[in-house]
Amino acid sequence: MINKERLVENFINMAKISSPSLKEREVADYIKKQLEEIGLEVIEDNAGEKFNGNAGNVIGILRAPGKKKVLLSAHMDTVLPCDKVNPIIENGIIKSDGTTVLGGDDKAGIANIIEAIRVIKENNIEHPEIIVVCSIAEEIGLLGAKEFNIEKYSPDYSFILDSSGKPGAGIVQTPFSAKGTIKIIGKPAHAGIAPENGINALTVAAHAITKLRLGRIDSETTSNIGMVRGGEAVNIVMPEVTLHYEARSFSGEKLDNLLKETNDIFENISKEFGAQFENGVTKGYSGYHFNEDEEILSYFKKACENVGIEYSTKSTGGGSDSNVYNEKGFKALTLAIGMTKVHTKEEYIEIEDMVNTTKLVVELLKEIA
């Protein structure tokens, strides 16, 4: 029932289109044309305008009056480098030529959704109302999902095709997150003539960092300083330093406690040295956790059984558009689709996994109809 050649060709066509975050215009137009050809009502919202992007979320609707509503989603943007992607098929695997990412994250998810709906239409399969959302700017903070008016469409269930791992795995737990900058403002002075007249911002930061909990804090919580920037010249006592910080935890309470602890350390050490401290860390997406008896999981499990794919659940340390939709009160489950080594030039996906993911989507729609 799945047209493997058509599925692969469609994915490769999209993979070749450069679509970094907020520059999704060309791939958005390609997807709109595909959805219109299938017979969906297609619109594009204005999500990109808020962030100076050149495209909005692409939304397609396949009506089924009186039926339940199912949202299927994947994001259009990819991480860099994504210009001049050259997909190669080798031994049943699609990969790039090694100079760019492949873009399976998340164009494979879009290809799966489009092929599944084609199969539904071609075979006159009974289906729920289907809402397709191809979102923008997922990779830089789930921006498209945050701007998408999910309340307007009110899906009963949402499935986000955007995780590594074999098809059949559903993401039932994701972390709460926070990130931003921490700035220490010291006092400049000539480093060779009068260093005692200055306050070295890096020294202040270093003393604070020795007291922080960083890395893997416990089984639920991580914390990291990923970038440090500061200084004006080698002969000037460093007047300012900015630290780029993030933290995640499956426990919202643990994250709150960690953020307070981190703030207090920097605040106290800064006072001790006579420096100033600016905390620009803000909370991002909220985590979620599904119990095994959730109805959305029962549909997914049954779909896996129907097509002979092993069902499993897992947690992940990353976020996806599901985090936004769950926070807004709409049940959303992220599905693994087989993408591997994402965000690297070694990224690849097995064609068999693409076919199996598409089968699962078709079966999910049949089960919920």
Rank of each mutant, 00 (worst) to 15 (best):
A191G: 11
L258Q: 06
L335P: 02
K146M: 13
D97K: 08
I94M: 05
A233N: 06
K211P: 03
F273K: 06
M354H: 05
I182H: 11
A28T: 11
E41Y: 12
L40N: 03
N279K: 06
G144Q: 04
I351V: 14
G329T: 03
I184K: 03
E347V: 07
K67D: 02
G338F: 09
I2E: 10
R63P: 00
V362Y: 09
G39M: 10
V228L: 14
N3T: 00
N112F: 05
G226D: 04
R25S: 09
G53M: 05
V85Y: 05
K302N: 14
S312R: 15
S135F: 03
E126H: 02
L212M: 15
N224Q: 07
L22T: 07
T282A: 14
L62G: 02
E350G: 00
K107P: 00
P188V: 13
T99C: 01
G198A: 10
N235Q: 09
G109I: 05
A47N: 06
Y299V: 12
G317N: 10
T100N: 10
G109C: 04
N356R: 13
T222M: 01
K67G: 01
I193E: 12
K283S: 06
C304R: 04
K302M: 12
T78G: 07
T203D: 10
T358P: 12
E151F: 11
G284L: 12
I117A: 09
A108Y: 01
V204F: 02
N323K: 04
T334M: 13
N54V: 01
I349A: 05
I351T: 07
G226A: 03
I136M: 11
E363Q: 15
E310V: 13
A206Q: 11
E295F: 02
G308K: 10
E267G: 00
H289R: 13
I269G: 02
A332S: 15
I31T: 03
E9D: 15
G230V: 12
E36T: 14
D321M: 03
K183Y: 01
T222P: 01
G66C: 07
G226W: 02
H207A: 15
G252C: 01
E367P: 00
E350P: 00
D353L: 03
A369R: 00
Y30M: 11
S21H: 08
D29G: 15
K16N: 03
A15Q: 08
D45I: 01
N112E: 15
S270E: 01
L360I: 14
L365T: 08
V237S: 07
E295L: 13
A247G: 07
V324F: 01
G198S: 09
K50R: 14
G329C: 03
G230Y: 12
H289G: 00
V362C: 10
T313V: 15
E220C: 00
G168K: 12
I130Q: 10
V342S: 04
S163K: 11
Y288D: 03
T358I: 09
L255K: 06
G60R: 07
E9T: 13
G98F: 10
T100M: 09
S251E: 08
Y311F: 15
S251W: 05
G109P: 04
S154G: 00
C134F: 13
E253I: 14
E122V: 06
D218R: 03
R213K: 15
F250P: 07
H75P: 04
G66Y: 09
A194I: 11
I185T: 15
